[in-house]
Design a protein around this nucleic acid. Structure first.
Lengths: 276, 276
DNA sequence: AACTACCTGTAACTAGATGTACACCGGAAC
DNA sequence: GTTCCGGTGTACATCTAGTTACAGGTAGTT
């Protein structure tokens, strides 16, 4: 039994009338026509009548146009499902920690793909000061970001819950903030993010999906999938994303960043911080 | 102007009613529902009525469901017509990073494999107090361990460099210490670890190989491979190992840990720490 | 305790979809 | 020349889609 559209057409290719053939060419060159279009759309596009489309569907072995369309859509659904989902489908879900973590890493890379990483990092390059806010399962990510960013640029501040008021006194529209938080969003981090947004600070949100309260604050957000390790949520994705952000900022600030790193290295050497 | 479905939803995420939210979750987890499905399909799938779907579409800024569906279909058509772009996306940004991180995860799982995780975690189960020490690239791991262990047992202390003397005053042979450090071992962490070892504290070392100065202090050590992300070393392996340790301790302390977690949850609920 | 505002679902309407019956047209065979 | 037949378009019936109007219920407020 043939599956894809070209296979279906090829199977009856020798029994097609001229009009059938024009229809076939159209659906082959524009796959979405069959998936999305109505009988009328197709007929207009090909320059024929609706019943011809019907007969075409019948000739391919379907009871009607609806059946043909359903078949095509099922095929597309598989292609459209995201790679990470496919991994999840194949591997056992939570049983294997390695599969879960590698899936999460894949999700991070996907979320940072294309131009996305640059978009997320942009405010961190140009901002005067940077404020970092985090919830519970994301603290490790926030720490990694704070420590990494401090290595490549000045003005990085970690906003502690107890000293929030004092810390944010000087925040303004020249600044940027990175907010980490995931499901069971911590009230404090969301409130802080809202406050910062109201002050005109550019918000970069690392969170778990578009339904997150953080995602509605800014266009610069990304969604990570958070696997569970034992009873707790993993902070591995948050940390990985933080490190990607640091790497991107370092890349863009290249000269300034290397100078700053060198200075830090000199300081470490002078104070004998490291053994080697 | 937002383009993709998640972006559309995020833009109005804070103005969604409970039913809207269920709809959003459905269309996010099953992207083809919006592209292919009818209003009735969606309503049935979510367990709501057709008008609610309509209001959802309106809230997203469309005149009706048809407009929303057209928008989604346009987006999908682009993805379908240019598969080469998607390949480039996955290859360009992070295939190297992805391979490196997944390799590191594999190393962590291997290092914790067999009985090894139990051996490493054993002192953390029975110790009276736990001291956590870390170097530079491992701080995120140390933080993750400290925060996770605190959730499942008492007496967990993060040893800060500046307050080391005071912190360690009460350390003794009933205690355990987890030391994170990797190449270019930080003088402070190594010295602290030696001091603790001399006090009779059981040392658990998370480091990078048998040649590490930490590995010579104890039999309970494990070696992780640390990949580079941009100019810096990744703390992802350290974080992953920390989380495995927490999970193992939680498993062994099952009753005590659940009780403690419950108490913490109650406290969070009472103080309204979380949004949900 | 009453009120208000806002979700939410039921029911009705309209438009456009699919599918079918039928008529037309061209060419080939008797 | 007439007849048959596959291919095609027209017209119609039916059904389901999207949409809108309205009423019931609920939560929060005064």
């Amino acid at each position: 039994m043939p599956e894809t559209t070209p296979e279906l057409i090829a199977a009856v290719g020798d029994r097609l009338t001229p009009t059938d053939r024009r229809i076939a060419e159209a659906v082959l060159s524009e796959p979405t026509l069959l998936a999305f279009g109505t009988v009328s759309d197709l007929a207009d596009h090909v320059g024929t009548s609706r019943p011809s489309i019907m007969r075409f569907a019948n000739k391919l072995g379907f009871g009607g146009y609806s059946d043909l369309q359903s078949h095509v859509r099922r095929g597309l659904s598989q292609r459209l499902s995201r790679p990470s989902d496919r991994i999840r489908d194949h591997g056992g879900v939570g049983s294997n920690v390695q599969v879960a973590l590698e899936g999460a890493i894949g999700g991070v890379v996907e979320a940072a793909g294309g131009e996305r990483l640059g978009v997320l990092a942009e405010p961190l390059v140009s901002a005067q000061d940077i404020w970092i806010v985090s919830g519970e399962t994301s603290q490790a990510g926030a720490h990694a970001l704070a420590s990494g960013l401090t290595m490549v640029r000045p003005g990085v501040h970690f906003v502690e819950e107890h000293s929030m008021g004092r810390d944010l006194g000087s925040a303004g529209s020249e600044d940027a903030a990175v907010v980490f938080d995931f499901f069971r969003y911590r009230r404090h981090s969301v409130r802080t993010a809202r406050t910062l947004a109201r002050l005109g600070v550019s918000i970069v949100a690392i969170t778990d999906g578009p339904l997150s309260p953080l995602a509605s604050l800014t266009d610069r957000w990304c969604a990570l999938t958070v696997p569970a390790i034992g009873p707790f949520d993993s902070s591995v994705p948050a940390v990985a994303m933080a490190e990607l952000l640091v790497a991107e900022v370092a890349r863009q600030l290249h000269d300034e960043a290397t100078e700053r790193i060198d200075r830090t290295e000199d300081l470490w050497a002078a104070t004998g911080t490291y053994l080697v």
